[in-house]
Computed example of a mutant assay.
Amino acid sequence: MNKKILIVEDDVVFCKLLTRYLTKNNFEVMDAQNGKDALELINLNNFELAILDYRLPDITGIEILEKVKSKNPQAKVILITRYGDQDVAVKAIDSGADAFISKPINPDELLEVIQGFE
């Protein structure tokens, strides 16, 4: 088994699609559709990689990014959003994101970014 990955995405169908895709590529994947559930998973697990939607129903991906990095400073974080403006990208990188990807996301391209961290 490769890296333990957390996916936080409020679009349930897209979230499950990414989870299945990365699981088939030998990653251990856990997912959440909101910040509250994501924070619970972070408290119970040590993730090596987090793929976070910027806009969630309860908190932002930046807030989750900060929790992931405070628990595991070596964790890699990819922030995703369909609102791909420069301000969000700059804020994500300034907050410690290792990559920023605008939706729509091609799963193969996401996999390439993840493999680039190894």
Score class of each variant (00 low, 15 high):
F14M: 12
L65F: 01
A38C: 08
K71T: 11
S70T: 08
Q86V: 09
E109S: 13
E40F: 01
G96W: 04
Y21M: 09
I51S: 05
V8L: 04
I80R: 03
D98F: 05
Y54N: 12
K103N: 13
F14N: 08
G35R: 02
K16M: 15
K67S: 06
A75L: 09
P57Q: 11
A99W: 06
K3Y: 13
E28W: 08
N46D: 03
M30H: 13
Q74F: 11
L17P: 00
Y54I: 02
N34G: 08
K67G: 03
Q74V: 05
C15M: 14
N43Q: 15
K16R: 15
L49N: 04
F27A: 07
L22K: 12
T19W: 05
K24E: 10
K4R: 14
N34D: 13
Q115K: 11
Q86I: 10
A89L: 01
Y21W: 07
A50T: 09
I80M: 11
I105Q: 11
D108A: 12
V13W: 08
I59S: 06
A97M: 06
E109R: 15
E40N: 05
Q115S: 02
D94N: 14
D37V: 09
F47H: 13
R82E: 15
L65C: 07
V90P: 03
F117V: 09
N106P: 11
K69I: 06
N45P: 14
N26F: 08
T19K: 15
K36Q: 07
N26L: 11
E112S: 04
G96K: 12
P104Q: 04
V29K: 10
Y83H: 15
K16V: 14
K36I: 08
N106T: 13
V77D: 11
M30V: 00
L111G: 06
I78D: 00
K67R: 13
A99T: 09
V29E: 10
E112Y: 01
L6C: 13
G35Q: 03
L65E: 00
V29Q: 10
D98Y: 09
A38P: 15
L39V: 05
E118D: 12
A89Q: 07
A50K: 07
N25S: 04
D87C: 02
Q33F: 00
F47M: 11
A92W: 02
V12T: 12
L79E: 00
I64P: 01
L49A: 01
Q115W: 00
I42D: 05
L41R: 10
K24A: 06
T60D: 01
D10F: 04
Y21A: 07
E112Q: 04
D37A: 14
D85G: 12
D10T: 11
E112M: 02
I42W: 04
A75P: 03
Q33H: 07
T23Y: 02
L17V: 10
P107M: 02
K103L: 09
K3M: 15
R20A: 09
D58Y: 02
I59L: 07
D53F: 02
Q74R: 14
V90S: 01
I64A: 04
E28H: 15
K103Q: 14
A92N: 05
S95V: 06
N34F: 00
E66P: 00
L44W: 06
K4N: 08
I114K: 03
I93S: 05
R20N: 14
I105D: 07
I101Q: 10
I93M: 15
K69H: 10
L22F: 03
I62L: 03
I93C: 03
Q33E: 10
I5F: 10
D11H: 09
V13C: 07
V88I: 04
V77P: 05
I93R: 14
